[in-house]
Design a protein around this nucleic acid. Structure first.
Lengths: 146, 146
DNA sequence: CGCTGGTATTTAGCATTGCTAATGAGTTAC
DNA sequence: GTAACTCATTAGCAATGCTAAATACCAGCG
């Protein structure tokens, strides 16, 4: 396999990419639609939006959080009316957690807010730069999921 | 000014960019060289690396943290031998905080580790994809600093 | 069936890290 | 020279993560 990324130029690109992604990620994280939800709670709702529904244990693994922490997060989300808890069909030890319509609306609003913030920021780029980013977006997405 | 980013394609690109950056940022954040340092402590050291030295108040503003929190962070960093405290030349209320050589080494190691992690991830891309990212890196960096 | 071991969740208690309010020292403007 | 302001700190609180232990349940084997 050709060792694509170990020349000097590419090392610089990796470093530049790293710092840009970290900084932009931090700034995006601060754009929150609901101050009463912690980042982890938001993240759990996002996961539920992707997966439909899951047990607390599954959620804990996906969010890299310990099961007891997830228990509390789910309890808080339920108290806020953002998730529903139902008995697991096959195993009475487990529960099924799923999001409510209210959560759905909040997630959409949140995505929209962050997209708008980023789009607004991108107004500061010229046309060529924006073309470059548009081409890079799917690649970056692939990279993030590798 | 031409409204570059409000067509459908660009909206999709913004959304894709947003989610990729957030996910990649989260994953990068987990690549820590020293588990005993919190992300904020690392960030303070990074700021000191960029700025040379600063007062606790300046650091608090830059890190978007309240002054009392910065007092504790600086105290912890000092206890770990990563920063030095000196009296302010002009104002005896203030102190000057600067990093030690040990902090410098740690920062370099941390950058290297995250770069290596990202470079390793990028091995999963093909040549064209990597070219695209290399072109996008400086643009992304500009965007992050806008 | 009944026991033994394993898994899912929860409870209890603790550590970390942020905050606000109040204090003390030092500076600045009138 | 004093009143008002600023900087750093102390004290105490809230949020959010963790580990260890408890509870409830499932699965397999005699």
């Amino acid at each position: 396999m050709p060792d694509l990324i170990h020349d000097g130029d590419s090392a610089a690109a990796v470093s530049s990419l790293r710092s840009a992604v970290m900084l932009l990620g931090r700034r995006l994280k601060h754009q929150r639609v609901d101050e009463s939800l912690s980042p982890t709670e938001m993240s759990v709702l996002g996961t539920l939006a992707r997966c439909g529904s899951a047990t607390p244990g599954e959620l804990a693994r996906k969010e890299h959080v310990q099961p007891p922490s997830m228990t509390r997060i789910v309890a808080l989300l339920e108290a806020k009316g953002l998730v529903r808890l139902e008995p697991h069909p096959d195993d009475r030890r487990q529960k099924m957690v799923s999001r409510t319509e209210q959560a759905e609306a909040m997630l959409a609003e949140s995505r929209d807010k962050r997209n708008a913030w980023l789009a607004n920021l991108a107004e500061g780029l010229d046309e060529d730069e924006w073309d470059t980013l548009r081409a890079a977006a799917p690649v970056l997405e692939k990279l993030a999921h590798l």
